[in-house]
Design a protein around this nucleic acid. Structure first.
Length: 486
RNA sequence: GGCGGCGUAGCUCAGUGGUUAGAGCACAGGACUCAUAAGCCUGGGGUCAGUGGUUCAAAUCCACUCGCCGCUACCA
C-alpha cells in the first residue's frame, strides 16, 4: 500500500464557481477515488485562493471586509464540491492561519533566493499581474480583458530568482521527472523555457495591497498572491514538520487548467527546487469549456452555472458528461442538446435500461434470486492505461464497450425464450452472467459515477434483487422546442 | 515574426507507411419483445484541405499553398 496525493488548483474567490471549476474538481476526484479503490492511502486536496488586491477592491465595493467576502465565496466553492460529490480530504483556504504561518516559513526557507529591487512596471489589478511596456503601449494603456487602465507601479519589491532554475526545470520536464500531460502543453512550456525565465516580483508594498500575508522580517511588504497561493500544495500537508507532508509529498498528480500552466510548470517547480523538495510527478492540464461553441460569459448570455445542470440531471449525469464528452486533452463544448442526448441515450437507455431489464427478468423468471455470479472476465487494460494518463474520456469509452457488449449479449441469448423453453439451468447461467457483467461495470464506474456504482451494487447485493425505487436514470423530456403540430 | 498543433462521413473524433479508411451521434430500413416505446441487426454516406514529391505502397513521410487554433515575441 502506498501513498497518493492529488490536488486541484485553488480557485480565486473573485467570481462564482463555473463549469470549468466543476470539471477540474471531478477529474481530480476520479483520480482520488480510483487510487482509494486500488487500496492506496490518499490525500485529495482542494481549496480557495483568497488574498490580493482584486479581492480587497471587490470587498470594498460590496462594503464588506475582504475576509467576509472570502468567507462567502469560499463557501460557494465548498458547496459546489459537495453537490458534485467530490471526495476531497482537505479544503485549504489561503486565509487559514496554518497556511499563513507556513507560508512565512516557506518564505524564510527561500530567502536565499529572494532579493529586493526597485521595480518599475505596469500592473493590472484585474489580472494581479505585471505587463511589459510594449504590451501596455499596444493596448493604448488600457487592459483589454478588464477594460481598465494599467497602473504605473514604481516600488521596492522582493524578487525571486526564477531565472536560476530555468535549466533544472527544463531538465526535469525533458526527463519526465515532471510529466506534463497532454504533450502539447509540455511542448508549450518547454518552448518558453527555451527563451529563459526571468526573475519575478513576489511581493507588493503593504500600503498598496494590504490584503495578503506579511513578508517575514519586512513589515512593509506582503507576499504576491500567486507566489503564496502555490504554496498551498505543501502547507495543506503541514510543511515542513507534519508526518503527512513527509509521507505524501511529492504529489502524484496536480490537476490544473491550461491558463495557469506557467505558474505550475515554471514558478512552482522553481520554488520547490529552492526548498530542496521533489517536484510533483505529474501535471495534468485540462482545457476550457465552451457553451454552444462560444466562450461562456454572462455578457454573451450563454452563462450556465453547474447548479443549473445538476438540478435538472443530477450529480452523476453531470460528472459523466464532463468526463466523457469534454475531451480530456482538449477544449470542449457544452450544449443542452448534447448533454440531453448523452443522458438519454447512454445513461438512461444503454446503462440504466440494462440494469432494469436484468432486474425485471430476474424477478419474473427467478423470483429475484441470482445466486453466484461469475467473476469479471473483461480485459480492463485499456481502461487502466487511459486512466494512468488522465484520459478520462477514453476510460469511459472502454466502460461503455462493456455496457454495449452486455446489451448485445442479452439480445443474442434471449433469456425470455430460454424461460419459455423452461431450461432453468441455462437461464440461471445467463442471468448470472448479466449480473456479473453489471457488477464489473459498477466497479469500473465507481471513480466516475460513485453514486450510480453504489446503486448498481446494492440492487444485486448478495445474489438477491433489491429493486431500486424508480430507475437509475429516468428518461428526461427534451428542453428543445418541439416541432409545431401539422 | 518565431515555435507548436490541427484540417478524415452531416456532427464529434480515432487512425503516423501495407488488404475494399473506422467508431459514436444523426439519418434510413429490418427482425424481435425481457426492459426506461429501451435494446439488437443491417444500410447509405468520405478527391482523408489543395498541389507537387519520396516509395513497390501515402490519410500516414517531405516541400509548398490555403484555412483554423494555441503559446510566444515584436513593429510605430
Amino acid at each position: 500500500m502506498s501513498n497518493y496525493y492529488v490536488t486541484t488548483s485553488i480557485p480565486y474567490v473573485n467570481g462564482e464557481p463555473h463549469l470549468g471549476h466543476a470539471m477540474e474538481f471531478i477529474m481530480a476526484d476520479v483520480l482520488a477515488r480510483r487510487a482509494r479503490q486500488q487500496g492506496e492511502m490518499v490525500i485529495f486536496s482542494i481549496g480557495t485562493d483568497e488574498h490580493g488586491g482584486k479581492i480587497a477592491e471587490k470587498a470594498a465595493e460590496l462594503k464588506l471586509t475582504p475576509k467576509a467576502l472570502a468567507d462567502q465565496m469560499s463557501a460557494r466553492f465548498s458547496q459546489l464540491a459537495q453537490s458534485l460529490n467530490i471526495s476531497n480530504d482537505r479544503f485549504i483556504r489561503t486565509t487559514d492561519a496554518g497556511h499563513e504561518q507556513r507560508a512565512q516559513l516557506i518564505w524564510k526557507a527561500l530567502a536565499k533566493n529572494i532579493y529586493k529591487d526597485k521595480y518599475v512596471g505596469w500592473y493590472c489589478t484585474g489580472d494581479e499581474a505585471f505587463f511589459s511596456e510594449a504590451e501596455v503601449k499596444a493596448n493604448n494603456g488600457v487592459c483589454p480583458s478588464h477594460n481598465r487602465p494599467y497602473e504605473k507601479v514604481e516600488e521596492e519589491n522582493c524578487f525571486f530568482k526564477l531565472s536560476a532554475y530555468n535549466d533544472q526545470i527544463k531538465k526535469a520536464i525533458t526527463s519526465g521527472d515532471l510529466l506534463i500531460l497532454p504533450e502539447t502543453r509540455r511542448n508549450e512550456i518547454l518552448s518558453t523555457l527555451k527563451d529563459g525565465l526571468t526573475d519575478i516580483s513576489v511581493s507588493r508594498p503593504k500600503q498598496k495591497i494590504g490584503w495578503g500575508i506579511p513578508v517575514p522580517g519586512d513589515p512593509d511588504q506582503v507576499m504576491y498572491v500567486w507566489f503564496e497561493a502555490l504554496m498551498n500544495y505543501i502547507t495543506v500537508l503541514g510543511y515542513p514538520e507534519h508526518a503527512d507532508f513527509k509521507k505524501f509529498w511529492p504529489a502524484n498528480v496536480q490537476v490544473v487548467g491550461k491558463d495557469i500552466i506557467r505558474f505550475h510548470a515554471g514558478i512552482w517547480p522553481a520554488m520547490l527546487m529552492g526548498l530542496g523538495l521533489a517536484l510533483p510527478k505529474m501535471l495534468y492540464v485540462h482545457g476550457f469549456i465552451n457553451v454552444d461553441n462560444k466562450k461562456m460569459s454572462k455578457s454573451l448570455g450563454n452563462y450556465i452555472s453547474p447548479d443549473d445542470v445538476i438540478a435538472k440531471y443530477g450529480t452523476d449525469a453531470f460528472r459523466y458528461y464532463f468526463l466523457r464528452h469534454i475531451p480530456s486533452y482538449n477544449d470542449g463544448d457544452f450544449t443542452w442538446e448534447t448533454f440531453e442526448a448523452a443522458y438519454n441515450n447512454e445513461l438512461a437507455n444503454e446503462l440504466g435500461n440494462a440494469v432494469q431489464r436484468t432486474v425485471v427478468m430476474a424477478q419474473k423468471y427467478q423470483d429475484g434470486v441470482i445466486g453466484d455470479t461469475p467473476p469479471p472476465e473483461h480485459d480492463i487494460a485499456q481502461y487502466e492505461e487511459a486512466l494512468a494518463v488522465c484520459h478520462f474520456d477514453r476510460a469511459l469509452d472502454e466502460v461503455w464497450e462493456q455496457v454495449r457488449g452486455l446489451n448485445q449479449y442479452i439480445d443474442e441469448e434471449k433469456p425470455w425464450e430460454i424461460a419459455k423453453q423452461g431450461d432453468t439451468d441455462h437461464l440461471r447461467e445467463v442471468l448470472a452472467y448479466q449480473v456479473g457483467s453489471l457488477l464489473q461495470i459498477a466497479d469500473l464506474l465507481e471513480p466516475f459515477l460513485p453514486d450510480t456504482a453504489a446503486k448498481i451494487k446494492a440492487v444485486f447485493h448478495e445474489g438477491l434483487i433489491t429493486p431500486l425505487t424508480g430507475t437509475l436514470f429516468p428518461k428526461q423530456e427534451s428542453t428543445a422546442t418541439p416541432e409545431p403540430a401539422q
